[in-house]
Amino acid sequence: MEQALLYAATLGTLACIYAVLTLGLNLQWGLTGLMNFGGLGFVAVGAYTAALLTAAPSATHVGGFGVPWWLAWPAAGLAAALLALPVGAIALRLRADYLAIATIGIAEIVRLVARNEDWLTGGPLGVTAIPRPFESLGTPTGQVAFLLLVGAVLAVLFAAAQATANSPFGRALRAVRDDEEAAKAAGKNPARLRLHAFLLGAGFMGLGGAMMTAFFKFIGPDALEPVTVTFLVWVMLIAGGSGNNWGAVAGAFAVWVVWAATDWLAAQLPGEAATRAAYIRLFLIGLALQAILLARPQGLIGERIGSPQR
């Protein structure tokens, strides 16, 4: 019973964290049409920021500072947004695909720094013993309490994302996405609007990263991988429906359930077969993305993706 509860709490916590990341991507791609293929970089910066701020002092990396989570998490979001600022400012002036390429570069730079700057990040050893809120309540109460906290953060961010989408700012973003020339003629500044959406989305991702490290109590250069962070979030958003916050959350939950279930199934296979099954799963998730793009580009619940080409 306790095992089952623990398992459910784990699944629920990660589902909520993924929903936060998907909301962030929805602000960027769904609402504004910005392609970010470097989600990993922003999540990692948020993760490291929160980790270094909250962890106990250590000789292997800078800090930690023992800062409480409620200060460290917003700081993580801020750090990710700061990372997005220079690159966004440069790449957003140009064609949409250049941003997509530049974001891959950001993820690569973050990975290099995490791996090589031992004094800052602990290098390959990473940052360990990161405190998790409510762990003093013991098992499984602590995990459930943490799930509730993550769920509350998701609820707040969801409300913020909804408010953004329905605000004049959100309408301006959609206007820029759908017809830049018309938006310009209406006196909007597309470059600035895009940059704001990009920073806001990056902030969500950084906050998601902070919650992830608190949950795993560890962050290292290989703890996050592009497939599960960057790519899975894209699949979640496309599946749920770009441009729609409800869709983003629903997509995150649905895809996460499938992902976790297939993970469990694959793990039941004996040794070598289990590894291979994991690769098949990777292939199938790519195929599923193609299927959704072709058959139901608007997602489960959706606005629509981009605007038709003339």
């Binding site: 049409g33 392609m35 293929f37 949409a96 695909d97 997509a100 497939v227 790519f231 894209w234 496309i238 291979r276 690769y279 098949i280 990777l282 292939f283 998730i285 790519g286 195929l287 993305l289 193609q290 793009l293 072709l294 580009p297 993706i305 981009g306 038709p308 080409q309």
Partner: peptide
Amino acid sequence: FYAPLRRSLPAVLLISSFGVALMLRALIYF
């Protein structure tokens, strides 16, 4: 994957090719 998306949604081609990248990598791992 790409041809059906070509006429309508240019940006989505990028996402589609990102998915193809993952599929190819999965095959190589497999």
